[in-house]
Amino acid sequence: MNIERFELEFWLNPLDDKAKYNFGSSCCKPVTVSEMLDLTGTDQEAFFREIESMSLHYGYFEGMPRLKQAIAGLYTQAVTPEMVLCVHGGTGANSIVCQALCEPGNNVVCILPSYQQHYSIPEALGCEVRIFNCGAGEEYSVDLNKVRAMVDQNTKMICLTNPGNPTGYTFTKAELEELTDMARETGAYIVSDEIYRGLSTEYMYSICDLYEKGIVTSSTSKVFSSAGTRVGWIVTRDLSIKDALMNLRSYNSICEGPINELIAAIILEKKEIFYERNRKIVEEAREILHQWLKGQPHLRLACNSMGPTSYIYYDFDIPAQQFAEDLLARKDVLVCQGGCFQQDKSFRIGYGFGDVEYFKSGLARLGEYLAELEQ
């Protein structure tokens, strides 16, 4: 398949361990197995006895029942375990959904900036991709009237990340309902990558709560501090597409590892503990970022974030990749350059790592770099 290079992964992965101040990650502070057991109040001896007795044969083909129940519990009562399919990570979820639904003759409406899978995979599969770019104007905004104008009878799906990657923008219930109305008019699906969902003090509405043809993709990677489990999921109330999803999953990974699914189930059963832990981490760091930005006249925050990252535009006449490369070379600070998200003169900054002094020191280095650009 001829597909565009995955810019974010090609940018971040080779540099992940190269910077003293790594603000590229979008995960909340990861836990060790021991920390996970302590946080959730799980009996360690019982946990390891269960693992010792596990068969190393194939796992559950739709996902461990305990895990599917825990995933369903992340949403309202509209979602049941039958509507959950466990897959290999959030990237596996996005890939499977796109491959199951997209084909030549369809179009896909994608709200940018977003995660590249949502537009590059449909394009590679022969779909027309229609882009609404929230970052194209002076101020970041989601103009749903312009999105509606892109939707027609050939629209297979509307794709978004909620909260946004990279911006952290969170759609209100009213905005999700408006998107639902426009999708329902033509029978389009709404695919919502909700991997950053859950860090608000209020319930964050999911597309699968509100729309019978809503499809959620997510995983334990970000707000559940366990990217290494590679446990993801697809949720949809439209069971008519379940066979297609299962078929693509069979080509993709067959099943997931039962040890990983057990860990994920324990974490999701205690979701509020992880929400509270990671909410505190990101809120403290985000406030530090906001205060620091008050002294940076050349930077503009895209929007208020409800995730572990924020997105920043700058007014220097320097391309995004060059800005990030120079920042890394001169100040040992790594950020995600805007080209990873089809944006110019901008970058994503992550702050979910849980070390305030580290973050302040890195911001000071970033401030030094900006001051040098003024000279």
Score class of each variant (00 low, 15 high):
S53N: 15
S53D: 05
M54C: 00
L56Q: 12
H57M: 09
G59N: 10
G59V: 07
F61S: 15
E62V: 14
M64S: 03
M64V: 05
P65C: 06
L67V: 06
Q69W: 04
A70F: 11
I71G: 02
I71R: 02
I71F: 00
G73V: 05
Y75T: 08
T76I: 15
Q77H: 12
Q77N: 08
V79T: 07
T80V: 08
P81F: 08
P81G: 13
E82S: 03
V84K: 02
V84W: 00
L85W: 01
L85D: 03
C86R: 06
C86N: 09
V87S: 06
V87F: 06
H88D: 10
G89T: 04
G89H: 06
G89V: 12
G92L: 02
G92K: 00
G92I: 01
G92N: 02
N94S: 10
S95D: 13
S95G: 09
A100T: 12
A100C: 11
L101G: 04
C102E: 09
G105Q: 10
G105M: 08
N106R: 10
N106G: 03
V108H: 00
C110R: 03
C110I: 05
P113N: 04
P113K: 02
Y115V: 15
Y115T: 15
Q116G: 02
Q116L: 03
Q117Y: 11
Q117C: 04
H118R: 11
H118W: 08
H118K: 13
P122I: 07
E123K: 15
A124T: 05
A124P: 06
A124Y: 02
L125M: 14
L125D: 12
G126Y: 08
I131P: 02
F132N: 05
F132H: 14
N133R: 00
N133K: 08
N133F: 02
C134F: 12
G135P: 05
A136I: 13
E138H: 12
E138G: 13
Y140W: 14
S141T: 00
S141Q: 08
V142M: 14
L144C: 07
N145V: 15
N145L: 13
N145S: 09
N145C: 11
N145Q: 12
V147F: 14
A149D: 14
M150T: 10
M150I: 07
T155R: 09
M157E: 05
M157P: 08
C159M: 09
T161Y: 01
N162G: 03
N165T: 03
P166M: 13
P166I: 14
T167I: 12
T167N: 03
G168R: 07
Y169I: 12
Y169N: 14
T170Q: 09
F171E: 02
T172N: 13
T172C: 11
K173D: 03
A174K: 13
L176N: 01
L176A: 06
E177L: 15
E178L: 14
T180Y: 00
T180H: 06
D181I: 11
M182L: 11
A183N: 05
E185W: 08
T186E: 05
A188T: 02
A188R: 00
A188W: 01
A188L: 01
Y189F: 09
E194N: 12
E194A: 11
I195W: 00
Y196G: 01
G198V: 15
G198I: 15
